[in-house]
Design a protein around this nucleic acid. Structure first.
Lengths: 89, 89
DNA sequence: TTAACATATTCGAATATTTTAATATCTTAG
DNA sequence: CTAAGATATTAAAATATTCGAATATGTTAA
């Protein structure tokens, strides 16, 4: 454990330090979703959701693909996220 | 995963969203340590370390015992922390 | 090309976190 | 009890985050 990158890890945690972002991440564990769908699940104004998605993207937790006129977000490493949240069960 | 407490989890992550607190947490994974020792390992002013320790305590990650005139901090759930950081290896 | 739908960006105000400096409290040896 | 070592608290300044409002950009169907 001594050789872990402390800054990288704390940034990872910071990315997930907001309830909305945890909620979105948990949703994406179920399946890939577009912004509108995420908006309905999370029930917040669209720009706010885009802001949180941008933070999750910058934190390396999600990525997206364009599908028609919608953007679909997905977890970059679902296994890691799965393992992460398993800890809290 | 659907029934996880999103607020509790995001608070947990927020507690670990600072490099100093991650570093302290990793140190405590090795062994229980008093504030002065932590100060030497982390190399920051003592009041700052006490502040971070207070945040870790409030976040439920550490606790302490009084040992003579020193306070010794330890992880409340070392197994959980161990599992958590194992994810990043 | 334009309209309409989908998503992103920008900015400012409000709020929260971090850091530093100063000081306070706690604990025990003497 | 007092002094000294160990740790905590407080306040203030600096910085970062969050949210809402307004607006901009991207995409496709027609």
């Amino acid at each position: 454990m001594a050789n872990l990158d402390v800054k990288k890890i704390s940034n990872f945690f910071k990315t997930l330090s907001h309830p909305t972002r945890v909620l979105i991440t948990l949703e994406l564990l179920q399946e890939k979703r577009c912004v509108t769908d995420i908006g309905e699940l999370v029930n917040l104004p669209q720009p706010n959701i885009s802001q949180h998605l941008a933070i999750l993207k910058a934190g390396g937790i999600v990525d997206w693909t364009q599908q028609g006129k919608t953007k679909c977000y997905f977890l970059k490493d679902p296994q890691l996220i799965e393992n992460l949240f398993k800890i809290f069960k």
